[in-house]
Amino acid sequence: MLAGADRLRANRRRVLTQGLVIGGAAAVGSLPGRALAQETAEGRLKTVLDRGRVIVGTGSSTPPWHFEDEAGQLVGMDVEMGHILANGLFGDRDKVEFVQQAADARVPNLMTDKVDITIQFMSVTVDRARMVDFTLPYYREALTLLFVKDSPFTSLADVQGKGVKVAALQNVYIEDLVKEKIPDAEVLQFDSIANTILALESRRVDTTFADFSTAGWVTAQDPGKFKIAEETWGNHNYAAAVRPGDQRWINFVNEIFLSAMAGLDFAPFHDAYLKYLGIDVPLAPAGFPTQFL
């Protein structure tokens, strides 16, 4: 799922790709050979180590993934993964440069070597896997519903067949996505996540259709105001992506991620997961390496 205001740009990009076929996919086909040759000779890992910092492409306006805190600092789970990567590479979590990019620039910026890696709530899809190499996944996104705390509804089943009003972020496919689960819903589309939350808070809608991570974040900010539906659907993975064809680089990134998610560098990952996603991840138990399942 694309979240946040980035979705708007993504919609616009759809227009480009459908109308003109000059989107990300086309860019792959027309890549100059120069950059690629340099890659095979040296490898991205050496380039990054020589440079002394890793360049990470991410977004800037979607909590809990990448957003500005009160001080204007870029924080969030995606951003934390960037710091974890820097720590693995250099032993210094600050040797990372974040390039803020719109969601529709995620693949093109990899292909043109503007970034070493994209860590930006990227849903793993087979289509995308044709263009990029995905790292190990670090989150399972899903769709769910938000309710106000005192709502009589608590689950998807509660709102089916009642002709409820549903707020959702404006998107080409959103109407179908909602009606797939709530066929009799009246869908009200808004321009920002903020306004979908307001629609709920002002009782204009019975529920707001949201990504699981967004719903979790919103609820965590004010547990007295909102609650999340019991079920999720459309579950899928978020992973970072690199330019395809550099096995050494992706292996190394994966080792760093694995060490953070299930190994000796677990602590910062665990704390960030709790802080941004509200999930107290247990360290994978000793014995059989279950993290590979």
Binding site: N195, L198, A199, E201, S202, R203, R204
Partner: peptide
């Protein structure tokens, strides 16, 4: 418009 559409009901509730 935001204030009337969103703000008023929140205030009313």
């Amino acid at each position: 418009l935001f204030m009337i559409y969103f703000g008023l009901p929140i205030f009313a509730v």
